[in-house]
Design a binder for these strands. Sequence first.
RNA 1: GGGCUCGUAGCUCAGCUUGGCUGGAGCGUUCGACUGAUAAUCGAAAGGUCAUGAGUUCGAAUCUCAUCGGGCCCA
Length: 1066
Amino acid sequence: MELSNEFNLKEIEQTTKNYLSKVDLKKLIDDSPDKMDKIMFIEGPPTLNGEPHAGHLRGRVFKDLWYRFNTLNGKNVVFNAGWDTQGLPVELQAEKELGITNGKSEITTQEQVENLVAQCKKIVAKFHEKWIDVDKKLGMSFNQENAYWTYKNEYIEREWKLLRAAHENNILTEGYRVVAYCPSCQTSLSHSEVNQGYEIVQDPSLYYKVKLQDEDAYFIVWTTMPFTLVTDAMVGFNPDQEYVYVETNNEVWIIGKTRLEEFMKEIKVEDYKTLKTVNGADFEGKKYIHPLLDNISALEKMSKQENYHIAVAEKFVDVNTGTGIVHLSPANGEDDYNIAMKRKVEIFSPIDDEVKFTDEAGVYAGMFVRDADEKIVQDVKEKNALVKIGKIKHKYPLCWRSKHKLVWLARREYFYMLDRLGDKAINAAQKVEYFFDQPKNRFLEIIKEKHPWCISRERFWGCPLPIWKCVECENIERLFSRKEIVDASDDLPDGPDFELHRPWIDRISIKCKKCNSKMQREEFVLDTWHNSGVAPFASLSDDEYGKKIPAPFFTEGIDQTRGWAYTLLIENVILNNKDTAPYESFLFQGHVLDEKGNKMSKSTGNVLDASDLLTEYPVDLVRFYFMWKSSPIETLNFSVKELMSRPYQILSTLFHIHLYFRQNSQYDVFDINQTTVSWAKEKGLLGPTDTWLLSKLQKTVDNCTELNKKCKFHESAKAVEDFLINSLSQIYIPITKPELWDDDESKKNRRFAIYAIIANALKQLDILLHPFSPFISEYLYLTTFGNKKSILLENWPKADKSLVNGKIEESFDMMNDAVSVCAAARMKGKLKRRWPLNRAIICIEKGEREKMELLSDLLHTQLNVHTCDIIELEHHTGLAELLEMKKADIPIVPKVDLQRKAIGPKAKQDLGKLLEIFAETDAETIIESLDKNGTFTFDINGNKISLDTDDFIIDFDVQEGFAFFKRDNLIGIISTVRNEELMSKGLLKDLARRLQSLRKERGYNPTDMLNTASILDLEQESLDMLKDKTEELAFLVRVKQVNFTKTCKEYKDDDIDGQKIKIAVE
RNA sequence: GGGCUCGUAGCUCAGCUUGGCUGGAGCGUUCGACUGAUAAUCGAAAGGUCAUGAGUUCGAAUCUCAUCGGGCCCA
């Protein structure tokens, strides 16, 4: 591989990929004696139901960065890929592709399930290919051969082991959960599916009354779903709101105060009287009589329970709708269900899979629940409990697929009762390092909730629940392994090696041990989060798991706080029945948004396809940009324009310094491996600039290392940027350039010292940058150093404390400030930087002279002046500063103005006159007087007005022939007058620069020695100035001779401060 | 609706713990300069109601409360 002369990131990327494809990097790392410390990484598996987009890339880059950083730090990282394959999204996609439009209700036969599962596998395979492609493009170091797949038999059997542990630790239970359910598709819907389908629909609006058991009064209750009266268990009041007793038609009604008037208007009752007002909380526990008990005998039985059909005070009750009193149906509402759970109210759910009432629902048995609405209203009326039936239009969720109105149903499910874990999960979570406080607090809060986790799903494509129930005696068999299933079965239609999925597992015939009847598997699969959360255990062997889990570092998007991060932790705690997380640290990553900060979504069309992005733009740049732009936990607004600006410049600079190094060091036949920094140090070849750079480098290395460890990757990238641009490129290279151009054999050692330093800095930069931008760093390393077959086999640099020199760094920073201030002064005097000047004066803080003088030679060259005076000043404003400067013989003149606000009261009516006199008074005179007496007195026709120092605004300006600039307490003054000698030197530099750029234009190498440089049409005056300087000019532009008459062929027109000239080189 | 969290220049952030000089830096922009590696670099300028409002205080970007807006999760 050869270092190209052209900077082309895409080409570099390709070259590196070609090279790496021929190298068995994994084997080289495995064989490397420096990298024996084996550590485990567990990949958070992407769900294979879509193509990767720009947002996915960020997470992958974090992972790969961590891999490379650790590999360089002597670790052998087990970095297996992993793929999440099951779950609802994949299944829905498969349904769509198979043309199933009515969901689960269309899938009734085993053949259909088999087809569905086959389709799911096809989808997974398709997207797997896309992801692999992107991983390749991105330079992910994943071991794809050892990738784990969440749907594989081995994985499922490991997952069952967790289930067994949960059962044995009494965490696994059966119970109810209220889910949104589509009666048409016969499927429960996830929250996100429900959220997709809100529309304005018309529903009945039923007001009915229920009598209190111990009072002669009625609650007026409102519902839009009359059928839920069948499952009514409580009515709710808001504890903090007022309710009123009103008398109308010889009855006492109880209604929320806020809605009273509106409600009465709505039911057209004008004649009513308010009796008293009470708080919602006062109703707590009051028993009422459900109007339809005669029709529903099972409900009547329920109502005998103490906590059934009572009023409850709950904060969520909204007093702004209906009557401010709501009825609660735990079997048909989520909030209702949660309250029932909290209050340990038994769930009455007489509804079957087809959403029809069962026999328990009495007279309503067999009716589809929503069809019962009408009859129930009728019955309420018959029982004389109807207040009003009307219609209402409101927002209500419809099934996104069938557009059918959803209903909420309590379904029998399996749960992990997390409260039974005690504080184990919290303790485990507290031991983890999260790098940032923000996600940590949230994570801990979530874990403290200890919500029961519903792990069962009524679907097909997932890890099946291996629990069988006898259809006759309800005896339960839990068979948590293939062997147990095989042993328990009396018929295995697919043989003992059947696939552990539906439909195959459902074909197995098992007879009840107790009554010898048929056993039926509980037709659930497990939550896909359960499936992925068991990855550390399921993707490893017992031995690996025991030794390598907890693993040091996991990372995933911030949305996974309640997702993967949570299930990983919970499942690991259950598995071990101990407070251990499977990870020692977890980095939550912020999401990627578009340029303007909008969420990337298909509907807005601002999604950036990962593959396209990586094809079009340099991968090194994309990776660097992701890490460099913002803190890992922050959201990142992705802008292609920004990507191509600063990050490009950084990589470009690094490349060009490598090129510069090669061009120069090759010319001197420098061998990196022979001549090192320690050699230069031993030989005493290091000057202050070298010491300074090396010192900065050590700090950069230290910084980057620490920051990477703390996941402050953006700061780490910025530390690299700072050193590369501000220290190496901006200062070190230009300062040492003249030394490198000097061909003198006697100064060769000095040149070698510089080469060694640049080489040392570049090699370390390559390594520091490698985790961010693997291709270019690999390329630069291989083409410039290449001691090993890959940069990954190198060792992460360690700061050499003996090279740190704080004193020199301080001096250098001061010098740079001084140079910058003088550059500004030059600007004011319109003097180019390359024109040498006679004199500079630099005023600094008291006590800093020593630091400044440490680098005085360098200061002279940098300032491009003959002499430079350094003056310490104690004062930095006003009179004191001025006097001090005068005392030091600095060529300044005082500038004095009046402090108008202060003198007004003193001069009063004489102000005008005073101003006149002031205008005619020499500033020097005022200063002298202030210095001597502390006052200056104006004599206005005998009226003496005495002003003191504070009445004046005192500043300074420089004398003619000087220019100055002041920043903070630093003042730079330069002489602007140029004599003939200075003019001619300036002219020389001007000409040299023009000839040099012409050389470049014509494609000559900087090191090529050319024959002739020609300059035509110079004015006589200029020619005279250059008389003695032709040799110097020839040296500067690297030619054998310079002439001022026509000898060359191709001339270029140029312009030098107004003189039209022609120049040529050949 | 609830929890967590963020809000300082066009962008990325520092300052907030412990209130106190004129709220800083880098990038980006504009103008000027420099440049024999560079889309590098140097100089100058423009750019801020420190989200809004109230409170505490002699004094608030900083402490307190409320509101608004963004994000994630949950409902």
